[in-house]
Design a protein around this nucleic acid. Structure first.
Lengths: 200, 200
DNA sequence: TCCCAGTGTGGAACGGCGTTCCAGACATGT
DNA sequence: ACATGTCTGGAACGCCGTTCCACACTGGGA
């Protein structure tokens, strides 16, 4: 058995059964072996999650302009989390894992290419990265909270419906917009907002 | 025994022993009771964490201008996470928990006060919120990863030191700035970046 | 050819977790 | 005095990550 077999089976389990579905016991069963065999190739569960994330999040930079490229990177991360919600929870858990560093590096280079001053490059790249990871985490949490078949209206109703309009005027005010909007488009709008701030 | 006693003891445990230090067993021991008594007042651990977060994150809006108020809100969240790192991990876990909704509402109102167009209010407030939660999560993860006594240089060395400079030019490039910078100031710089984007 | 070190396996077992269950203590209203 | 509903605390359940260890298998030196 190879390490890649283990990681592959782990990804499969995470995709089908969610974060809590990945267990060394069911992983053993699926691989028709015992926990000991798995621990020979993988140090612990945390390392397995990092490896699974690394295998799933493959982002590359491609675009005509730095700005366009940043949008493409951000959307690639968004789409990966959309396809594998557990990644959204995993990414911010260990900020130094290779998958995050790769994204950070890619964004940073494009920020440099935008002509941002040296002293502000880290702030700019970090703002973008944190926003991307933040939304991803949020989307993953929502995806987990929603039982299949729930409509968008149902979701907001259950989350915000009980709020007192007098106490939460803003949230009630924007609810109507949320009913029809697209998560991906809104995510992109946020990226553009930050890009606008970066470009000054 | 009151529910507030349980939440208070939980906060104390989380502060002193971290996220993994909160256990119904040690919580029972500290309260000199059994798990059953706790479950009479609290449905499960998740609810306990939400209650603990709610008790710790008390943010209020105060400032001369909307922009100034947003900065104050953001810093209040940042400081709360700095004082209680476990909050950083808890906040994005359940986006609909009251503590998050309160912050969202406060930010949203200030965004409205800034004169942002109706259709963009949610995007703007959401970008700010996601950035704040993202950085908080990141800081919390870092705080947990760092053993007391580690210097800033040690931390970056262990996280990024092994990176190939040819493959990660940007990260290596910004490392020197990170050695001397202040997390709080950098967080604020990110908020200002987004504010600049919002104001157009 | 025999052996033996090294690589890899799989099942049993350990301690700890969140949670459930239940017998009973206690206060309260009749 | 007693019945009722509230609240307690300890035992037990099932599951988890992880460790341990006896055992197959394999390839190269004597």
């Amino acid at each position: 058995m190879e390490r890649s077999d283990i990681v592959g089976a782990a990804v499969e389990l995470l995709d089908t059964a969610g974060e809590s579905g990945l267990t060394f016991r069911v992983l053993s069963a699926r691989l028709k072996t015992g926990p000991g065999a798995i621990y020979w190739h993988v140090a612990n569960k945390s390392e397995l999650l990092v490896a699974a994330t690394d295998a799933v999040l493959t982002v590359e930079a491609g675009g005509d302009t730095p700005e366009e490229t940043i949008r493409a990177i951000a959307l690639a991360v968004f789409d990966a989390i959309d396809a594998h919600p557990w990644v959204g929870a995993q990414l911010p858990r260990a900020p130094s894992q290779p998958a995050v560093l790769r994204v950070f590096e890619l964004i940073g280079r494009q920020v440099q290419a935008l002509g941002v001053a040296d002293a502000e490059q880290f702030d700019a790249a970090s703002a973008l990265l944190n926003y991307i990871l933040g939304v991803g985490r949020q989307n993953a949490a929502n995806a987990q909270a929603v039982t299949p078949g729930t409509t968008r209206a149902d979701f907001f109703e259950s989350a915000w419906g009980h709020l007192d309009p007098a106490e939460y005027p803003f949230l009630r005010h924007v609810t109507k917009q949320l009913m029809t909007h697209d998560d991906r488009a809104q995510f992109l709008a946020g990226v553009n907002l930050i890009l606008k701030g970066i470009k000054g």
